[in-house]
Design a protein around this nucleic acid. Sequence first.
DNA 1: AATGAATGAGCATTCATTCAT
DNA 2: AATGAATGAATGCTCATTCAT
Lengths: 192, 192, 192, 192
Amino acid sequence: MNREEKKIATRKKILDSALELFAEHGYETTTVHMITERAGVAKGTFFNYFDCKEDVFCDLQTFRATLEFEKLKDIRGPILPHVREFLMEFVRIGPNSRQLVRAVLLSDLSNEKSLSNQRKMLEELKDMLIPLIVEAQNRGEFTSAIPADMIADQAIQTYMGVSFTWGMGMGDDKLITQMVASFELFFRSLLP
Amino acid sequence: MNREEKKIATRKKILDSALELFAEHGYETTTVHMITERAGVAKGTFFNYFDCKEDVFCDLQTFRATLEFEKLKDIRGPILPHVREFLMEFVRIGPNSRQLVRAVLLSDLSNEKSLSNQRKMLEELKDMLIPLIVEAQNRGEFTSAIPADMIADQAIQTYMGVSFTWGMGMGDDKLITQMVASFELFFRSLLP
Amino acid sequence: MNREEKKIATRKKILDSALELFAEHGYETTTVHMITERAGVAKGTFFNYFDCKEDVFCDLQTFRATLEFEKLKDIRGPILPHVREFLMEFVRIGPNSRQLVRAVLLSDLSNEKSLSNQRKMLEELKDMLIPLIVEAQNRGEFTSAIPADMIADQAIQTYMGVSFTWGMGMGDDKLITQMVASFELFFRSLLP
Amino acid sequence: MNREEKKIATRKKILDSALELFAEHGYETTTVHMITERAGVAKGTFFNYFDCKEDVFCDLQTFRATLEFEKLKDIRGPILPHVREFLMEFVRIGPNSRQLVRAVLLSDLSNEKSLSNQRKMLEELKDMLIPLIVEAQNRGEFTSAIPADMIADQAIQTYMGVSFTWGMGMGDDKLITQMVASFELFFRSLLP
DNA sequence: AATGAATGAGCATTCATTCAT
DNA sequence: AATGAATGAATGCTCATTCAT
């Protein structure tokens, strides 16, 4: 492992430890000392990689921003199979322990910067969903009785609702199972 | 106002100030000094009423436990109107600013004690919903294709999903409007 | 000693300790811990009295701003006796150990706020001196060959020069002796 | 440029950067990182040339010790022209921005080692001045009413006083102008 | 019962210094 | 000889909590 790789590894160690600890104790209660201790580095090392404690926190969220919403654009024909597939990938990429989910939600709420990041991301997702929904309505897959943007809102709410309650310890052992089940029911409400 | 009443008033002033501040800044970021300043009492007074800072926090949550789930027990005949009414009261009692909603969700997530309180409350709610749903299924209001407990989970998820996304700043200006709209869609998915 | 007096006493203890330590080690090298240790209070107590470390520093200078320059305004008749008297009082009020003088000069230089405070004070002093000098020139006490404002500058320079070299450990044991001697020589240069 | 020359150049780069930064921010506030960044070398390189941060600081002062006081020894005949000339060179060699002057004075005061260096230098200067002054008194250039060592003290005080007040931002734009003006007045006080 | 001065453990952050590469 | 990642002691500052008044 050369120098550059070591640096990346150290950064990752710190990020991972931070994510775990934020999940276990929340942002404020987690100290830099705790993070570096778990990462197995000195306290000072933390600040070689991040300007301040808050920065790690924001970093945690960026991984989600990289999600490939783009894929949704190219959907042709019946929408449901694609949405199911997208959803599964979306969940597969994200955190998969209840603790981690809680940590991410916590981060969304506790911090003004995170809050607006997250809101922006959801708005983007919504903008990408609407045309898909409209097309599905035209094709007769979804009811046209409900406006497309309301359906989009609803989809996002379903996603966040599942995340939240699952993160709290309720629902099926696997997040993906719970997510798919909830969306099946959701799609049921969209039948023409 | 006699002595005893004064004591109760002081306690209430402190609790109210704390709730407001937790809503504005979160638990950790709110200091005892901030609370007593807003309540208009001296810092020491706080500790005459609460053993430690965490205690106010737990006190804040108890108000939700007092919610009258009991009412749900006595429902007879068609369920939908009752559920709609219950929902509206439920939302009316709870916090109504996005900030407050966020604060409460934050409190649910940040603290082990709060987390388990909240989970217990939701489980209770679920247990109360299931027989109602079964009866509605028997009466033909809801589809029987979906197990009652799954529907109950779904209802709770819908509630949390709306709370979360609305707290983040999305959706209709009024929480109640958003909540009702989402539940109408939800009920749509339960049609036989 | 009642509560209010105690507060004043504590504040004074902290200020005195700070002044001594700044004199011994300079501003940056002196830690809040050192100050509170010498003052015999807890570290936190420091911050009950001053918002930050820098504030003590600025406080140290204010005592000089209270100097009664006003007295100079009312001088009538021959100026020299009054100036001598003023000078002696000026020195008597100010710090009298070499260490303290050094601390004050150090504070003037190390900190932008102090620097501008001090400059302003000296400018004020100069403005007050000029009319006196003009009158003395008219009365024939001082030469008119040198502009009054230059003489004022010179007086201030003499004062600072004595302070600096004396603070460094040179000159007569007593600052006042050294100051008077230097000003006698200075006045000699102003003979018509 | 061979290896030896390169080493000398690197050392100089570091020293120059340090001097500039000490002038701009003072000793304590300047970090090794700032120095090496401005010098364009890595942080580690600093410690290849200096054992510790303090060492650069002491090195900076030595340049003043190299001042050729020796020249004063060989003065014959009327003293004033020589002293004027010496003074001008003295000032020309030294720092010429208000910031730099302030930095040097600061360094004199903040550090025990610097303080004693500076004191020693001034004492030497004084010892060199006294015989010159005695001779000038004998020749009738200066009054004999004032002891020669007092005059020497006075000269040094004048020098430091001008430096200090000029460094603080007062007086003529050019230090040399201010210095010459003050010394002219000083010489005036020495007329027989 | 109410006050607020005093406390000190604990935190984020800085930075001179080391040392493997 | 030069590098810069890693170190950890030290610092300014916060704040829940105590307790004499």
